[in-house]
Amino acid sequence: MLDWTVVTAAFLTAAVEWVEAFTIVLAVSLSIGWRAAGGAALAALAVLAVMTVATGGVLNLGLEVRWLQLAIGVFLLLFGVRWLAKAVARGAGMKAMHDEAEIFAETRAELSRGDRSASWLIAFKGVLLEGLEVWLIVAAFGLHGRAWISSGAGAAAALVVVLAAGLAVRAPLTRVPENAIKFVVGVMITAFGTYWTFEAVAGERAWPFGDLSLLALAAFYALGGLSLIALIRRTRPVGATA
Rank of each mutant, 00 (worst) to 15 (best):
M51R: 00
R233H: 03
R90V: 13
P208R: 10
V184D: 00
S112Q: 10
V134N: 13
K182W: 10
Y195K: 05
R170I: 11
M97F: 09
S150L: 06
S150T: 07
A87V: 02
A9L: 11
T13Y: 02
I103K: 06
I24E: 05
R82C: 02
L63F: 14
G145D: 12
A216C: 04
F183W: 05
A147P: 00
M51S: 09
L163G: 07
G166N: 04
D3Q: 05
D99G: 13
A15R: 08
L111W: 07
G126D: 11
V81P: 04
A36Q: 14
G39K: 11
V74S: 01
L2Y: 10
N179R: 08
S151D: 07
R233G: 08
E20S: 15
A147F: 05
E20A: 15
S29K: 13
V138I: 12
A118E: 14
V185A: 11
D99S: 15
T23L: 02
A216G: 15
K86T: 12
L223C: 13
L163F: 10
S213A: 15
R205V: 15
G193M: 03
V65K: 02
F104G: 10
L45F: 12
W120M: 06
S150V: 05
A85M: 00
W120E: 04
T5F: 09
A191S: 15
V74K: 01
L2E: 00
K86S: 09
W67D: 08
T107Q: 08
W196P: 06
K182F: 09
F183K: 03
G38D: 09
A9F: 05
H98F: 14
V74T: 04
G145A: 13
A200K: 11
T55G: 14
L226I: 09
F79N: 14
D3G: 00
L2P: 05
V176E: 04
L68N: 10
V81Y: 11
F209A: 15
A180C: 00
F75P: 02
